[in-house]
Nucleic acid binder design. Structure first.
Length: 579
DNA sequence: GCCGTTTTCGGCCCGACTGTTTTCAGTCG
């Protein structure tokens, strides 16, 4: 759906917007770049098609100036305006924006008054007490920034899994067309679906020279720099500095290399120990008696030779999976294709981009058979949240669309109602009672202490008209850790009230998080995996939620989205006493 | 920088919170 060239352009427009913001440009100009980036990233056709047909300015948000920049990029791979901008505003300033509390205006001030250009010069200035001398900065800000900086540095795994997968899809397609590439696959933490990771790893069976492979990869519009590293790896980066490691292997040894590079390191070490117990030696290049390791081209053969069932990558964390594979007793995981219901989505009625009609059609096309329309409640002013009156008007519209679909798709009408700071809800019960389904989520006051946050969420989860607690922590990677919840208390409340806890599949949220979900899974709480879709392309995010469920060893029967529509309806009706 | 059967110029989404102030700018959602 997304195209590499659109994404490459969108990222450059985003970067222009960031740099303009630090420079202090006209806010509406900046917004125009951001809007264009957003639209390009979600454009269903490659922008090259518009270019060839001379229709660039037909793309909403693209006028003469942006069309010109798109043309320059497509013709030369460069945008001179961006290059001039980067000479003027050091791009290293952009990493400062990652720190919570530092926006473009403060970054500009630090740069102009203290000459701060990156994280290390900021740290130095903070430690020397120079930052608090700047007007607008004080002791509290100094302390907060030092903490944020330490936090930022402590986070070794800095990148988003979704970014890795999206890049992987483009690069694998690209690799297919390179002669002498026999096979190419995703490997490493990306393949294990680790939510936050140090970069993308690919495994490539290749018989040519490393330099040729590197040159071919650098021809891709999303990759900017790279080098040959040792005799079996290439390291590259995309325009945002996202690291890509390409492991190169002989085709015959693909199987052992794939197991080795997929990891985890602990899982691999345990496999090697198991091999030793059997008098064998397991290396990335083969398996057999020490010194006579033979290559294995298929991964299944590696596990089989060790007397194990093949282990899905999401389980390879050395949490007991090897012992279970030995007894052929691996847990049943939620099948990838079992997710057939999205119970948390948005339309143009609040901050979504699609009409109800288009959202339903897009969901159907995606293979969904149940869709809940859950726009924001009134407290979400930024998101154009619905008043009770507007919800009722929307209800009429949902009814019309429902009639058009005549039961082919189960369309539920509910809302994502705000959980207010005290745990009460942003809509009156009389309105909630009319809904097919209620998702209740926290959006504001996310800096409560653990006691207040837990009381708030437990109260919401215990409300008889709340079916699903949406993104319970309200976290937003990487800037916001979210509510410091006692998750076990929330899980107990959910169990006591037959309420489902959401795994929000938005890659920036993944909330509940993995450890939370593991606890919920052990307690046997119901879970709802939803995309929180605002765009058509957001439906694709469900894989991150499903992956998290698999990594948490969640029993498939606890996932309400995997139930038959009748079962789901039965649960909802029973909960609100309509059963 | 974009956009227009209310405008080709003057709009473009806004409110709460916080730390820094002494009346408000910047950040965030």
């Amino acid at each position: 759906m997304t195209h590499a060239i659109n994404l490459a352009l969108a990222r450059r427009f985003e970067r222009i917007a960031d740099l303009l913001e630090i420079r202090g440009d006209e806010p509406y100009k900046i917004r125009a770049y951001r809007r264009a980036a957003e639209i390009l990233a979600h454009l269903p056709e490659p922008v090259t098609r518009y270019y060839e047909e001379g229709r660039l300015q037909e793309i909403p948000g693209i006028g003469a100036a942006l069309a010109r920049k798109i043309e320059q990029f497509l013709e030369t791979g460069r945008i001179p305006f961006l290059e001039r901008l980067q000479k003027e505003v050091p791009p290293t300033l952009l990493e400062l924006l990652q720190l919570p509390g530092l926006g473009p205006s403060k970054v500009r001030k630090l740069w102009k008054t203290l000459g701060i250009r990156d994280l290390s010069s900021l740290e130095q200035a903070l430690k020397e007490g120079r930052v608090r001398q700047v007007p607008g900065f004080g002791a509290k800000t100094e302390e907060r920034l030092l903490r944020a900086l330490a936090e930022y540095r402590r986070r070794p795994q800095n990148y988003l899994l979704a970014h890795a997968w999206s890049l992987a899809a483009f690069l694998l397609e690209w690799l297919q067309d390179i002669p002498a590439v026999h096979r190419a696959e995703v490997t490493g933490p990306t393949r294990r679906w680790v939510p936050y990771l140090p970069g993308l790893d690919l495994l490539v069976a290749f018989t040519g020279s490393r330099e040729d492979l590197l040159a071919a990869l650098l021809g891709h519009p999303l990759l900017e720099e790279g080098e040959v590293h040792g005799n079996s790896t290439l390291t590259l980066r995309d325009a945002e500095g996202f690291p890509v490691t390409v492991h190169v292997v002989a085709p015959a040894a693909f199987g052992t290399a794939w197991v080795a590079t997929t990891g985890s390191p602990e899982h691999w070490a345990r496999l090697q120990a198991l091999a030793r117990e059997q008098g064998l030696s397991l290396t990335p290049h083969g398996l057999g008696p020490a010194g006579e390791e033979g290559p294995l081209a298929e991964e299944e053969a590696v596990y089989q030779a060790l007397g194990l069932a093949w282990i899905p990558p999401e389980l390879r964390e050395n949490r007991g999976e090897i012992e279970l594979a030995r007894r052929d007793a691996l847990p049943a995981l939620l099948p990838w294709e079992a997710w057939r219901a999205d119970l948390h989505t948005h339309t143009q009625w609040s901050d979504g981009t699609l009409s109800i009609r288009d959202l339903v059609a897009a969901a159907w096309k995606r293979g969904l058979r149940v869709l809940a329309i859950t726009d924001h409640s009134q407290a979400q002013r930024v998101a154009n949240g619905l008043s009770p009156q507007r919800w009722l008007a929307q209800h009429q519209e949902v009814q019309r669309v429902r009639d058009e679909w005549q039961g082919r798709m189960l369309i539920l009408h509910g809302a994502e109602v705000d959980i207010l700071p005290d745990g009460s809800l942003d809509f009156p019960d009389e309105l909630l009672e009319r809904m097919d389904l209620v998702v209740a989520s926290p959006h504001m006051n996310l800096k409560q202490d653990a006691e207040a946050a837990t009381a708030r969420m437990v109260r919401a989860a215990s409300h008889p008209l709340v079916d699903i607690v949406g993104h319970p922590r309200g976290k937003m990677w990487p800037r916001r850790a979210g509510l410091p919840l006692d998750v076990d208390a929330l899980i107990r409340a959910a169990l006591a009230n037959d309420t489902a806890l959401e795994v929000n599949s938005n890659p920036y949220r993944l909330d509940l998080g993995e450890e939370d979900l593991r606890r919920a899974a052990q307690a046997g709480a119901l879970v709802s995996i939803n995309t929180d879709a605002h765009h058509v392309s957001d439906f694709a995010h469900h894989v991150f939620g499903v992956a998290l469920a698999r990594r948490a060893w969640l029993s498939p029967e606890l996932v309400v989205n995997a139930w038959q529509p009748e079962t789901l309806l039965g649960w909802l009706r029973r909960r609100r006493g309509r059963g």
